[in-house]
Design a protein around this nucleic acid. Structure first.
Lengths: 345, 345
DNA sequence: CTGAAAGCGCTTACAG
DNA sequence: CTGAAAGCGCTTACAG
C-alpha cells in the first residue's frame, strides 16, 4: 500500500496545524470558512480518509456496534440456529441501515465461550451491543459488568429488565391464531410448542393459546398439547406420529412456522389432508410459509421493525451517553393463507 | 465505566517496563518464564484486556475482515437479496468460525454508494474483504486500488481474475440436473433461468443444461427456455402461465430453488400434478426445498464449504502478506426428492 | 533477558 | 480563528 497520508501531511501541505485539520474533519465550528475550504481541497486532492481507529484511541468511541447472533449454535441444543435462521438477514439489514446513517458499523459475533464474550467486547471497545435470542445466564452478567448500551431481542427472562429489550407480543400472537381457529368453528384445537417449561418465549405463546381457549370455554386436554424440538424435523416426527396414532383434533396452533411446515409435510405425505382434515396455524411468517401448497396461515412477526427499534434504542443511549432500559413490544399480525378453513363436520 | 486499566498500570504493578508487558501479551520469546508468569498474574488480577484498537495503530493490523453482502438491495433490481438470502447465515457463520480461530472479526457492510465503499474500507483499516455476489463494476475498481486481500464469491465477470474467487460449478450442476431428467426418460425438457444474457451465473447454469441436451441429441426449442425474475413471485407467475396456456413439456430444469418452488406452487394450486405431469429440478438446495410436498429435487450448493474456502483464502494472504488470485470451484451435488419421476407416457 | 523512547494517527483542552 | 503539545494504549527497533 502506498504510504498512507496522515493528518500531519495534510497540515503541512495546507500550511496549518494538525489541530486545524482535525477541526475541519470534525466540522468543529472554530475555523474560518476560507481555511476550511482550503484544507478540504487538499484532503480531496490526496484522497485522504481519516483513520477511525486512530480517532477512537483519542476520543474513546469506536463507532462499532456488536451484533451477536446464535450463529454457531452447538448443534445439540434447542436448535436456536434453525429457529432464528430465516430472520438473520432481515434483522441485520435493518440494524445496519439505521446505524450506518450515524456512521456506525456492525461487528458480528457468534456466541462465545463463557468468559470470552466480555473480553471480546472490551478488546474491541464496542460502543454498544445488540443480542438476538437467548444465551446462557452468565453472558448477561458479563454484559452487565460492561455497562455499555445493550439491547436484548426476544428475551423474557428477568434479567431482561437490566437492559433494553425488544420483543414480539408472543402471547397476543398465538391468542390471535387460536381465536382465528375458534372463529372458523373449531373446538378441538391442539397446541404444539418448543419446551414450554424451559423457554419463556414458547411459554408465552402457549399462554396466548390457553387464554383464547378459556375465553371460548373450550377444554385444553393434556393430550392435545405437544412438545417438540423447534426444527423442521421435530415437526415431521410429530406429523408422522399423528399419521400412525390417529388424531382427535381438527386444528393445531403451532408456535413456529418451521415446525408447522414439518407437520404439514408429514400429514400431506401420509394422507391427512390439509386443511380439509386438519387446519394449521403457524407463527413467525418465515418466507417458506408462503411457498407450500396450501400456504401456511400464520402469525407474522415484523422482524425489520424489531431491528429498527433495536438500532434506535442503542443509538439513543450512545449519543446521549445514557443507560436506559426501555422495553418495546412489536405487534404481530394474523396472515390467513390456505392451511386453515371452516370446520366442516 | 471504571477507569480502564492499561499497559502502563500493569507495568507499574508488576515492576517492569511496558515493553516487557507487551512482550508477554504477544508471547514474544524474549522474556523469562518467571517474569512472564508474574506479569500474567497481575493482568489476570486486574482483569486486563489489551485494546486491539491501540494495537492496530502501532502495528497496522486491525484484525478485521469486511464481509459485504447485498444486504440492502435496491428493491428494483434482479432480486439479488432474495436470491442469496437463505445463504447469508450459513455463509457468514462459516467465515466467522474460520477467522475467529485466528482472532479476527467480521465487520459487516451492505453495499455502499459509489465511492463510499473504498473510503469505508480505508477508514476502518480492514485487513481484507470478502464480497458475496455481484456488484456494479466500479466497486471492483475501487477495491483493486486498495490492494488488500480480497475474495469474490459467485462472480464470473472477467475482473474476478484480479482477486481470489470462490464459485459453485454452476454449469456442471445444471448438467447433472438435466442428465437426471434425461435418465428418467424425459425428452421434452425446458429450462427456466434468470436473465441469461445479463447474468453470467444464470448463463453458466443454462450452458450446463444445453450441454446435457446436446449430448443426448435432444432439441432445445426456443419456446422451452423461459426467463424470469429470480424470486418466488417470478416462479409463481410462470407457473400460472403454464396453467393458462398449457405446457408441452414433461420436465423443467430451473436454475434457482426459489423460482422452482414458485412454479411448483402455482402448478399444484392450478391442477398440474407434480411430479405426475411435470418433473422439476431446482438449484441451490435452500432449506425450503425439503419443506414442500413433494420435496424439490435439486442441485445442492455447499455454502458452508464456500465460506470456509473464502475465509481460508483471505487468511492465507493476510498472514503471509501476499496478494494471490486463486480461483476455487466447489462441486455441487444432485439431491433427489419427490418432484421428479420416471416419464410415464 | 529487560528498558527507555519514539511512533502509530488522531483529538482536545489550553493559550493566545 | 489558529497552534503547540500532551495524551489515547499499544508496539518495536535499539541499546545494554
Amino acid at each position: 500500500m502506498a504510504k498512507k497520508t496522515n493528518i500531519a501531511e495534510i497540515a503541512r501541505l495546507a500550511g496549518v496545524s494538525t489541530a486545524t485539520v482535525s477541526y475541519v474533519i470534525n466540522d468543529v465550528n472554530k475555523v474560518s470558512e476560507k481555511t476550511k475550504e482550503h484544507v478540504r481541497q487538499i484532503m480531496a486532492e490526496l484522497d485522504y480518509i481519516p483513520s477511525i481507529n486512530a480517532r477512537s484511541l483519542s476520543n474513546g468511541q469506536t463507532k462499532l456496534i456488536g451484533v451477536t447472533l446464535p450463529l454457531i449454535a452447538p448443534s445439540d441444543t434447542t436448535g436456536t440456529l434453525l429457529e432464528t435462521n430465516p430472520f438473520f438477514s432481515e434483522y441485520l439489514g435493518e440494524i445496519h441501515k439505521v446505524i450506518a446513517s450515524y456512521g456506525y458499523d456492525i461487528l458480528l459475533s457468534g456466541i462465545q465461550v463463557k468468559g470470552k464474550y466480555k473480553n471480546w467486547i472490551k478488546s474491541r471497545g464496542l460502543d454498544g451491543i445488540i443480542l438476538l435470542g437467548s444465551y446462557p445466564t452468565d453472558i448477561y452478567e458479563e454484559v452487565k459488568d460492561l455497562n455499555i448500551p445493550t439491547v436484548l431481542t426476544d428475551v423474557y427472562e428477568s434479567y431482561a429488565n437490566d437492559f433494553h429489550s425488544v420483543n414480539t407480543d408472543d402471547a397476543e400472537g398465538s391468542y390471535l391464531a387460536t381465536k382465528h381457529l375458534i372463529g372458523l368453528g373449531h373446538k378441538k384445537i391442539g397446541f404444539v410448542g418448543g419446551s414450554i417449561k424451559e423457554s419463556p418465549i414458547h411459554n408465552n405463546r402457549y399462554v396466548g393459546y390457553g387464554k383464547a381457549m378459556l375465553e371460548a370455554n373450550l377444554k385444553i386436554n393434556n393430550d392435545c398439547v405437544f412438545e417438540t424440538l423447534t426444527t423442521f424435523e421435530g415437526g415431521l416426527k410429530l406429523g408422522e406420529q399423528f399419521i400412525k396414532e390417529g388424531l382427535d383434533l381438527t386444528a393445531l396452533v403451532v408456535d413456529a412456522d418451521i415446525v408447522a411446515l414439518g407437520i404439514m409435510k408429514a400429514c400431506q405425505d401420509g394422507g391427512i389432508k390439509i386443511p380439509d382434515r386438519l387446519s394449521i396455524v403457524g407463527f413467525d411468517d418465515i418466507q417458506a410459509a408462503s411457498f407450500t401448497s396450501p400456504g401456511l396461515t400464520t402469525i407474522r412477526q415484523f422482524i425489520s421493525k424489531k431491528g429498527e427499534i433495536a438500532a434506535n434504542l442503542i443509538m439513543k443511549d450512545i449519543l446521549a451517553n445514557t443507560r436506559s432500559t426501555d422495553s418495546k413490544v412489536v405487534k404481530s399480525k394474523l396472515i390467513v393463507r390456505g392451511s386453515t378453513q371452516k370446520l366442516t363436520i
